[in-house]
Design a protein around this nucleic acid. Structure first.
Lengths: 185, 185
DNA sequence: AAGCCCATGTAACTGGTTACATGATTCT
DNA sequence: AGAATCATGTAACCAGTTACATGGGCTT
């Protein structure tokens, strides 16, 4: 039921349209925390309305519907957040591949590790820009800038990917490659 | 089709029983890369056999079946590994919660961050022990110790969780809590 | 008026979970 | 004999994807 709780969480800060919520997923949630597509979000919003967790507070142009939390929904969200979970199952195809590296020949691993570094660095650049933007818009107020928290997590994760791949590539260098005893250059 | 490829990857190092494969998931894959339970693994192995990706190479005690890769399966695995993916969707309930922190009151966040630190530190201790074990068993041979690669990734991920939570808690300290203007101590 | 983005939805399918079910072997 | 672990499976259900489908409103 994580999609449901993710939607409740987004609505905690105020009413949003379905389209809006979908955008939130695309921008940040889908990348690091929880992926969802519109064809899953819209039906879920309908079910949540039926279950009394949210309600339509406005209907705008182009058939847009603005959803807001009901009291029940807000309570459900807080209950979920405050209930500890042991170890939640993770699914990341990228990480799975890293774990499966050993099934390749040593020579084939290097380009894959290089790809990880390249992609991670692109992500780092993107997040650096985002963080700069957030920091510039932040006036020292009474609430912390939470978008900054998520961005920081994303940044550190990308750095981890990069650093791990560089470390792994370094480890590979300590072992002979298939043509190291027959250097052609 | 990631479960399928995860199973192929595990079988790349040699034949295994279903029970054995399931154990591999429980130990490491499920925690950091890809979760799967036995009730999903067994039917998938049957389908993969039907599709000619793997085959039963032995049947042992207690009805156990040992599966091995076919040539087709090995090719399929390599194709999958060597085909680049752009950004694969991620799903982690734990990370989702971190992203949803802002929907709580500042005072409620701190215990959650403390939990993250505690759990991450338990994971670090576990992985430290695992790595020591791997290193002790490693004789400088011709192939790198790949279990070490996965363990290193897990370790760094746990450290990231801990460090981020500590950083976030520090950020919270810079903002007034609901009773900071009325200190009871 | 053409093209783009806004905005929502459905249908058929595949992926994955939870609970149920069974029996063999080993250890104490 | 009883408990734990090995070992595999099925059935009903829920979660999520892919492809299809539609139309309103805004900009040039």
């Amino acid at each position: 039921m994580s999609l449901r709780h993710a939607l409740l969480g987004l609505l905690m800060e105020g009413p949003h349209t379905g389209y809006d919520l979908r955008g939130r997923f695309e921008q940040s949630l889908s990348r690091y925390a929880w992926h969802a597509s519109h064809s899953h979000i819209y039906p879920e919003l309908r079910k949540m309305t039926e279950d009394g967790l949210i309600e339509i507070v406005d209907e705008g142009a182009r058939g847009s519907k603005t959803y807001g939390l009901t009291e029940h929904g807000a309570r459900e969200f807080r209950d979920w957040m405050l209930t500890p979970i042991k170890d939640s199952p993770v699914r990341s195809e990228q990480t799975l591949r890293l774990f499966m590296l050993s099934a390749l020949e040593v020579d084939e691993m290097r380009p894959l590790l290089d790809d990880v570094v390249t992609q991670a660095e692109a992500g780092i650049a993107e997040l650096d820009a985002a963080i700069e933007h957030i920091d510039a818009a932040t006036t020292s107020g009474d609430k912390p800038p939470f978008a900054r928290f998520a961005a920081e997590f994303g940044l550190r994760y990308r750095q981890l990917q990069r650093d791990w791949a560089l470390w792994a590539a370094g480890e590979l260098d300590r072992y002979p490659t298939s043509d190291s005893d027959n250097p052609s250059a």
